[in-house]
Measured scan of single mutants.
Amino acid sequence: QVALSRTQVCGILREELFQGDAFHQSDTHIFIIMGASGDLAKKKIYPTIWWLFRDGLLPENTFIVGYARSRLTVADIRKQSEPFFKATPEEKLKLEDFFARNSYVAGQYDDAASYQRLNSHMNALHLGSQANRLFYLALPPTVYEAVTKNIHESCMSQIGWNRIIVEKPFGRDLQSSDRLSNHISSLFREDQIYRIDHYLGKEMVQNLMVLRFANRIFGPIWNRDNIACVILTFKEPFGTEGRGGYFDEFGIIRDVMQNHLLQMLCLVAMEKPASTNSDDVRDEKVKVLKCISEVQANNVVLGQYVGNPDGEGEATKGYLDDPTVPRGSTTATFAAVVLYVENERWDGVPFILRCGKALNERKAEVRLQFHDVAGDIFHQQCKRNELVIRVQPNEAVYTKMMTKKPGMFFNPEESELDLTYGNRYKNVKLPDAYERLILDVFCGSQMHFVRSDELREAWRIFTPLLHQIELEKPKPIPYIYGSRGPTEADELMKRVGFQYEGTYKWVNPHKL
């Protein structure tokens, strides 16, 4: 086992960053958080920038500027975001240094004079007029057009580079997404736009490419001749908990499936790229999406959770019991969808996408189930092999396979070949997804960000279904809070070829 401390991990990262040409360590950078008073800024962006600063992973002359409508001070920003920093008493001095680099400007999102004030403020910072500028839009999409237009007109660096990070949702359907994309691309070049999907920053999602293309053993079996089906799962054990009003506007397909799960599907299904260059990788992902037809209604199961009468606390409440959810809402909190990649490698292999709230566990994984062994000599005792990439929690890679049961006879039983990170790298604290992705933006690497043509294809696949749901308002199937979801989803999976045995229990190697 390799035991690495946080300091050692960050030392390795620093070495990698400083050796590259793309990370300008000594240049002045300004990180501007648009929507600095909001939840995302408070819980994710400010803490992430602090962790990067604490670990010495930001360029040395980096300033952080918050911008929002609320009249706040840096002290206010500190008060609301610091509880999420997880700072230790030993880091007190470092924390003071961090907040000394912070400033805040209040202004409207659609007022040109406010942006001119913001620009004057940035120019007044040390070497601010020639600094590289990175704008993070932690804002609702309704203000994107006004904000990007004003940034472009008043706040661009004339000497350094300018980059803009856009948070999902990128529209509600193909038409609104196209409108937003066309607007942003009329102001910024594609190499300046970073559409963030934080799932692409997760260690195991990034590991998929290495697993596939750096190991000879997987190449020959990664196709329709050997793989019976692919299941991509995202499960949350909690409901909307008072935030249903926002969720109800989008629903589970827009929230998770059309982005996170579809991105994971691309990494499983794509061909080997010409290189690890950002556009070479994204070219292959677009090719996969172009091979997927629009979702067919007979390959869809929609569910909505109801309270568990035997549960406790939140578990007793259904989705419609959330006071922020519109009365009688038919918005799905669970969806199972089957897609097919219609190309030579994957023809006929079902890709089953499942996601839901208020389920029995927290889990995100990719599961490849292989065909049955031909010419069975073990009297149907063999179960199908599976390769599982567990994204969260407890990152893991393992192969479910058959071995001989101890004893006199040739009785096979299920076991696993474990390729888990935790076994080799004991207690290594890896940077989280937002840390990686923000560092990628500083480096100018777009590999783990969504390109406009990729986004367009993703919406093309799901828009007809979303429009049909909005028009017909089908009643989702009720499922109990804390269950596996509607049984109809299991029946759909069985119908397209997935075999669920229920006889195997994964042993978490992190707890051995």
Rank of each mutant, 00 (worst) to 15 (best):
R384K: 11
Y425D: 06
V281M: 10
K494P: 04
T316V: 12
A396D: 04
M270C: 13
V338C: 11
M402F: 10
I352K: 00
R390K: 10
K357L: 02
E472C: 11
G444M: 06
R367G: 02
V441D: 04
E344R: 08
N298I: 11
L261A: 09
V496Y: 12
M447H: 02
G313Q: 10
Y305C: 05
P476Q: 03
T399F: 08
L320R: 09
L430C: 09
R282S: 04
T316W: 09
Y479Q: 02
L466N: 05
A433R: 01
A315P: 12
G318T: 06
A297V: 12
I480R: 14
N298M: 13
E314G: 09
D418A: 07
E501K: 09
E365T: 08
L262V: 12
R354C: 03
H467F: 11
W506F: 07
R345P: 06
L353D: 04
G318K: 06
D432R: 10
C266M: 06
G313E: 11
F442D: 05
Q296T: 14
K400P: 02
G375Y: 11
G444V: 00
D280P: 09
S293G: 12
S278Y: 10
N423S: 14
K505T: 14
S275N: 08
M402E: 11
I438W: 03
R362Y: 07
F498C: 12
G407E: 09
S483P: 04
L267Y: 01
Y425F: 14
V295E: 06
S329Y: 01
Q258F: 02
L465I: 14
V428H: 15
M401E: 01
W506A: 04
V341D: 00
F449C: 01
S275F: 06
V391K: 04
E395W: 03
M401Q: 07
L465R: 06
P323H: 15
L320Q: 09
V388F: 02
I352F: 07
V300H: 12
Q392A: 08
L466A: 06
G444F: 01
M408Q: 08
D255W: 01
A315D: 12
H371Y: 07
P406M: 06
G497W: 04
E491M: 12
A315R: 10
L353R: 03
A335C: 12
E501V: 08
P474C: 13
G482T: 04
N427F: 09
M408I: 09
A332C: 11
N360G: 10
V301T: 11
V325H: 05
T316M: 13
K404W: 01
E284Y: 07
Q392E: 03
E312M: 13
N299T: 11
Y434R: 01
V295G: 15
C355D: 03
K317N: 14
H260G: 01
I292V: 12
V428R: 12
Q380P: 14
S293P: 12
D322Y: 04
F351H: 02
Y504E: 04
W506E: 05
N385R: 02
M264P: 00
G311H: 09
E314N: 11
A336R: 01
K272W: 05
H448T: 05
I377W: 10
F449Q: 03
E395M: 08
T399K: 00
K317H: 12
V388A: 09
K317Q: 15
K383E: 15
P486T: 00
G313S: 10
T316N: 13
E501A: 09
C443Q: 12
A364V: 12
P309L: 14
N308Y: 09
C355T: 11
K383I: 13
Y504K: 06
R384H: 05
G375H: 11
Y479C: 02
L302H: 06
E386I: 00
W459C: 03
T324L: 10
V300L: 15
G482H: 07
E361S: 07
V507W: 13
L419M: 12
R495N: 09
M447E: 00
R367V: 04
E470P: 05
V496M: 09
M408G: 07
P431I: 07
E284S: 09
D322A: 03
K357E: 03
T333H: 01
N427D: 11
F409I: 14
G318Y: 02
K400M: 01
S275Q: 05
D490I: 08
T420W: 05
E416I: 00
V366Y: 03
E435L: 08
L471D: 15
N343W: 00
T420M: 07
L262T: 13
R384Y: 02
C266T: 14
T331N: 11
F378S: 05
T324D: 07
R327Y: 12
T333D: 02
N360W: 00
R390A: 12
T331K: 04
Q468N: 15
V349N: 03
V288Q: 07
A374G: 09
P406F: 04
S483I: 00
L267S: 07
A364Q: 05
E488K: 09
L353E: 01
E294I: 10
K363Y: 00
I253S: 02
E395I: 05
Q468V: 14
L302S: 08
E365Y: 05
R362Q: 15
K429I: 13
Q304V: 06
V366N: 01
V428C: 13
